[in-house]
Design a protein around this nucleic acid. Structure first.
Ligand SMILES: [Zn+2]
Ligand SMILES: [Zn+2]
Ligand SMILES: [Zn+2]
Ligand SMILES: [Zn+2]
Lengths: 169, 169
DNA sequence: CAGTGAAGTGTAATAGTATTACACCACGGC
DNA sequence: GCCGTGGTGTAATACTATTACACTTCACTG
């Protein structure tokens, strides 16, 4: 559960948001490893869904993914949802609750960590950053209420650096 | 933007989660005051939606609200959504993004505050608690990323005190 | 006191998100 | 070979949210 600083250093080279991921192949590899560890197949469909998300700058809805995949070969939403389920378990994809959409992640996450999804209301990109303070705050609130915390969702709507600059110019 | 302690003291008498609100009338009054301040009518429909939520222990979906209201007189979902929009602006109702459902709130909220919604995965109740640490963490993450924060969503799934006890017994 | 405009209502239709059901296929272990 | 687990493809359905439009209410103003 590294400190905020340490974690940020790990995230360098990642630049703005999770822009068209430099490294789609690496993400595929991570998913494949997860599948192997669980002795589950890393199927064509799973790879295709992840690839679409990894190439995209912004979160996509399940139906947007469906549409893109359908260009090459008709697929149905339920197939995409199945792929998304797997990829979320693998930690390769997150769901943005506030937008009911999905985006690829190339971070390693750790249990107990609290990750903030910063969503730009102007351009739609998402940038994620773990925060120990937030984790502590959640922990504290839970403790105070006798609540046993499991899975946090932390989303912050606002305006990303790039969009702020653009406007200023 | 009081400290965690101070805020919690203000919340006493509120007991477990936002159980069938002791004080439906007070919540109505709050909504009415908001409406008056904006010179907007506090209509029948708005009151009916709020009343249903205030009497309920758990969040309800818009369609569940629709069904309850329809018992006395048939209403349509869109009418409920309109009521919910108003009530959310008034700060009397929150939306739980992770469940696409709505619940009444009898707290006062303040700008810049970060409120944690603790959602019991067993009984479904929601308990809210403001956290300064979380607020600071969000602020810090945003600052570090050059992100201009606007509206946070913080939800924590887990098990409430009551359910934990019950199991232990 | 008619005219106007902002805001709400009631109804219908539609868009958008997610799940269930089921028949069939692929593969690894016995 | 047979079976069990897990994936696929297809259809149907459930659930969540919004748009459109005709009509009403009410406060304001000329
Ligand atoms: Zn991530
Ligand atoms: Zn932006
Ligand atoms: Zn509240
Ligand atoms: Zn509970």
């Amino acid at each position: 559960m590294a400190g905020e600083k340490a974690h940020h250093e790990r995230c360098e080279g990642h630049g703005h948001a999770h822009s068209p991921h430099s490294d789609v192949a690496a993400m595929i590899e991570r998913a494949r490893a997860f599948a192997a560890a669980r002795k589950l197949p890393f199927t064509e469909m799973r790879a295709r869904v992840l690839t679409v998300l990894a190439r995209e700058e912004k979160p996509l809805t399940a139906y947007e993914i469906t549409d893109r995949l359908s260009v090459s070969k008709k697929v149905q939403a339920v197939q995409v949802y199945r792929g998304l389920d797997f990829l979320q378990e693998a930690g390769c994809v997150h769901r943005l609750a506030s937008k009911a959409s999905y985006f690829a992640c190339d971070h390693e996450h750790h249990p107990g960590e609290a990750v903030v999804f910063m969503v730009c209301s102007h351009c739609g990109t998402v940038q994620e950053a773990p925060s120990d303070l937030v984790a502590q705050g959640l922990q504290g609130a839970a403790e105070h209420a006798g609540f046993k915390p499991a899975h946090p969702i932390v989303e912050l709507e606002g305006e990303c650096a790039r969009c702020s600059e653009t406007k200023a110019a």
